[in-house]
C-alpha cells in the first residue's frame, strides 16, 4: 500500500510541475467550477463476523452466510473546482464532497430462519437474546478529492477523457438501525448499535474513470464518468467489508 501511495504522490507531483510550467505560458483563465454527484455500488461486499450474532463463526454450519445477505454502496454530492492546462488537455481537479456510505445485513427471505439472534447481555440478569431481521448503517463523511484529468483529443462538443484521483473522507458521524422482529424491541436500537465497531474515521478511495464531456471549452460542460473505485483505507462500514466498487458520476462545470 505504501508503494501505491508513493506512486500516486509522485505522479501527482509530476503533473503538478507540468501544470505550473504550462501556467506560466498561458494567459487565459482556465478555471472551472461546478457540482457533482455520484453513486458507487460495491462489487465485492462481504459480511463481517460479530461475536454477538449467534451462529457467527459457526463451524458446523458453513452455509450460514448464504442465509444472510450484505449490501454496501456510497453516494456523494459536492462542489468541484478544476484548473485546465496545456491547451485544456490536462486538468487538476479538487473540491469538497459530502459522502454517505450505506451498508446492511438482512436475513434472506428464502432461508429457513428469517431472523438472527443477537446477544445483548451476558451478565448477572442472565443471557438476553433479541430476534433481528437485519441491520443498516449510514455513515456520513466530508471529503476532499484530488485528481488529474487528461483529454487526449482536440476540443469538440462531445469529447472523451480519463481521470484518476484520490478522495480523503473524514467521518462526521454514523448511525445503525436494527430491524427487530418484534417492534416493541425498538427501544434496544441504540444499545444494539453500540455492539458494533465504529467505521473508519478516515476513508480513502482511489478512482480511475473514463468520462464523456458535452460542451466546448469556455462554455458550460456536462460530464458523465464511469469507472472502478478502490477502497484503500479500513472499511467505512461496521457491518460489511468491501474493496472495490463501480462509480457513476454526473457533474456540471461552468467557467469561472
Amino acid at each position: 500500500m505504501k508503494r501505491f501511495y508513493l506512486l500516486a504522490v509522485s505522479l501527482f507531483l509530476v503533473a503538478f510541475s507540468l501544470m505550473l510550467e504550462a501556467q506560466e505560458k498561458e494567459k487565459t483563465n482556465n478555471w472551472y467550477w461546478g457540482i457533482s454527484t455520484s453513486i458507487t455500488p460495491s462489487v465485492d461486499t462481504e459480511l463481517k463476523t460479530h461475536d454477538f450474532i449467534r451462529k457467527d463463526n459457526e463451524q458446523w454450519n458453513e452455509y450460514y452466510f448464504d442465509f444472510v445477505e450484505g449490501t454496501f454502496y456510497s453516494w456523494n454530492l459536492g462542489l468541484n473546482i478544476e484548473r485546465r492546462f496545456l491547451d485544456n488537455r490536462l486538468a487538476i481537479v479538487s473540491g469538497l464532497l459530502y459522502s454517505q456510505t450505506i451498508s446492511g445485513m438482512d436475513s434472506d427471505d428464502y432461508s429457513s430462519s428469517e431472523f438472527m439472534m443477537i446477544n445483548i447481555s451476558n451478565g448477572s440478569s442472565g443471557v438476553e437474546y433479541l430476534k433481528v431481521k437485519g441491520f443498516d448503517q449510514k455513515a456520513h463523511y466530508l471529503g476532499i478529492p484530488v485528481g488529474v484529468k487528461y483529454t487526449p483529443l482536440k476540443d469538440h462538443f462531445v469529447n472523451l477523457y480519463i481521470k484518476a484521483g484520490l478522495t480523503f473522507d473524514l467521518l462526521l458521524g454514523h448511525k445503525i438501525n436494527t430491524d427487530f422482529v418484534n417492534p416493541l424491541m425498538n427501544k434496544y436500537n441504540d444499545r444494539v448499535g453500540k455492539l458494533f465497531n465504529d467505521p473508519a474515521n478516515l476513508y480513502t478511495t482511489f478512482d480511475f474513470r473514463g468520462g464523456m464531456k458535452l460542451g466546448k471549452v469556455g462554455q458550460p460542460n456536462l460530464n458523465l464518468e464511469i469507472g472502478p473505485t478502490v477502497i484503500l483505507s479500513d472499511d467505512p462500514s461496521s457491518i460489511t467489508t468491501s474493496e472495490v466498487g463501480f462509480s457513476f458520476q454526473l457533474n456540471v462545470l461552468l467557467p469561472l
Binding site: 442472565g126 438476553e128 437474546y129 433479541l130 418484534n182 424491541m185
Partner: peptide, 14 residues
C-alpha cells in the same frame, strides 16, 4: 446457570 430470555420472554435456562 442463568436465565435465558428472547425478546424479553423467558425461554429456559442455560
Amino acid at each position: 446457570v442463568q436465565r435465558l430470555t428472547v425478546d424479553e420472554v423467558e425461554s429456559g435456562v442455560i
